[in-house]
């Protein structure tokens, strides 16, 4: 009679297949990624029942915070550069190659033209800090915001304007932005909201 031998099982699990799957997933996420642009101010958008989405591309987003500071983001890089050059022409500023590259790296447009060259000479991390202090001038005497949008609309005919404002923004600030846009014959906007189906 022989004794019953218990086989020694190894607990080694082959992770190769698992690794394959994760790499595939990772590739998918990397390729489909379009990053959320970092915003200099945190905006809580108001809730709405509207389920419509904003268009995929050619968007100019206007950010308005509670104090009425205005910032711009554009999704098309080539347009952005063209618009910067136009603005430079209007204000008699020529930007160096390094400054233009810095402008493309920085997703937010948010300083007055007078401080723009100085701002672009700074490092990206410092730029983010400075952005919090400044905004695009949008009052009646010095309406650079209007000019930015005007040049952006001129360079890209399919441009659509999205307005992202904080829910606590006083109405006169919003009205100012809308008035500026109306003055340059832009009448259609997408007001960015978050879905609130409970309403």
């Amino acid at each position: 009679m022989s004794k019953v031998k218990t086989k020694k099982h190894s607990t080694f699990i082959d992770m190769t297949a698992m690794s394959d799957v994760t790499v595939l997933l990772l590739t998918f996420f990397m390729l489909t990624a379009n990053f959320i642009p970092k915003e200099p101010v945190q905006l809580i958008t108001p809730g709405s029942i509207s389920e419509a989405k904003i268009p995929d591309s050619n968007i100019l987003t206007v950010l308005v915070d509670t104090t009425g500071h205005v910032y711009l983001t554009m999704d098309r890089r080539d347009n952005k550069l063209a618009v910067l050059r136009e603005m430079g022409k209007a204000y008699g500023i020529t930007f160096t190659k390094a400054q233009e590259a810095s402008f493309l790296m920085q997703p937010i447009i948010g300083v007055p033209m007078s401080t723009m060259p100085d701002f672009l000479n700074k490092r990206l991390e410092d730029q983010d800090k400075i952005l919090k202090k400044y905004s695009i001038p949008a009052d009646s005497t010095n309406n650079q915001f209007k000019q930015w949008v005007q040049y952006a609309a001129a360079t890209n005919k399919e441009l659509s304007i999205a307005i992202k404002a904080d829910q606590a923004t006083p109405y006169p600030k919003i009205n100012g932005v809308l008035m500026s846009l109306q003055a340059i014959k832009q009448y259609r906007y997408h007001l960015i909201t978050k879905l609130d189906a409970a309403k």
């Binding site: 996420f29 509207s50 989405k53 906007y189 997408h190």
Partner: peptide
């Protein structure tokens, strides 16, 4: 980090 879900918007 990615915005898979696009934000809602109200057209006006």
């Amino acid at each position: 980090a990615t915005s898979l879900a696009k934000p809602q918007a109200m057209e006006i």
